[in-house]
Amino acid sequence: MSINQIQDEIIGEFSLLDGDMEMTVFYIMELGQKLPAMREVDKTEDNVVKGCQSKVWLTARLENGGIVFEADSNTAITKGLVSLLVRIFNHQKPEAILNAELYFMNKIGMERFIGTQRSNGFAAMIKQMKLYAFAFKTQTELAR
């Protein structure tokens, strides 16, 4: 599925919650609980994407031309949001990630988490994923 197809799928799932903020946040946390566990050895300072109140760990590797992200967070809500990003970006080509426009946040009522880098690592994490995509794209081009 393309990045936008996955975003639309997520928007569809959240639309069942009817804009109820409490249910939306509960659902996000539930998704976070299902995120595959990250290996403890990967939770290093080097892999931290820092926010003021919550921490995110992120690793990335290239597999068959797509990027595989692994992530975790010390707060349940951020972890849930992170799991959505991993679902959207995993196995996508670096170029597609770089050019992706994330619109699902606004549609599921979570736009407040964008641009509030100070209170959670979410906005910083999107930037970091795109940086990884840029790095892998450059690496692949140089290898050619």
Binding site: E22, V25, Q53, S54, N74, T75, A76, I77, T78, S119
Partner: peptide, 10 residues
Amino acid sequence: GIHHFDIGQM
């Protein structure tokens, strides 16, 4: 076991 950020948001 619950981060203060999650409590505040909820």
